[in-house]
Amino acid sequence: MRIVLIEDAMLIEKEQDVVPFRNRVKEYAVKIGMSVVNQTKLITAASELVRNMLKYAGGGKTKMEVISEGRNSGIRLVFEDNGPGIKDIAQAMKEGFSTGQSLGVGLPGAKRLVNEFEIKSSPGEGTVVSIIKWKNG
């Protein structure tokens, strides 16, 4: 069973919010004793997703949770925006695809860096991405 130990939230409205958000995520990752490599992967994934949110939806809400399941603990992050949504999620998850002028590594890259990755979106409905990085995994 998955238990939520700590819950926190942060609004992302401008690009200057990205660094404080990353620092907050790092604080929780350090708190549960996550290794530096896993911390870096989690924060990088978080940075990609929060940037997407700013770029395509002009910002949104983030939720941070410290969760535990059996002996394992981890960090769950949820990114929720009210932007235009994604028409074709399969295409958005493809390597090298971008509707903006970026490299198109954001979504697929972020997925590779975490243990669990879930995306829900439809045009006009906004996008919700949630990721989990386990301390050992």
């Binding site: 490599v37 870096t40 992967k41 990088t44 490299l103 697929p108 890259g109 590779r112 860096l113």
Partner: peptide, 14 residues
């Protein structure tokens, strides 16, 4: 570059 950053960069695909 810190080792953890290098590991992450490659996995990210950069």
């Amino acid at each position: 570059m810190q080792p953890a950053v290098a590991i992450t960069l490659v996995e990210l695909g950069l």
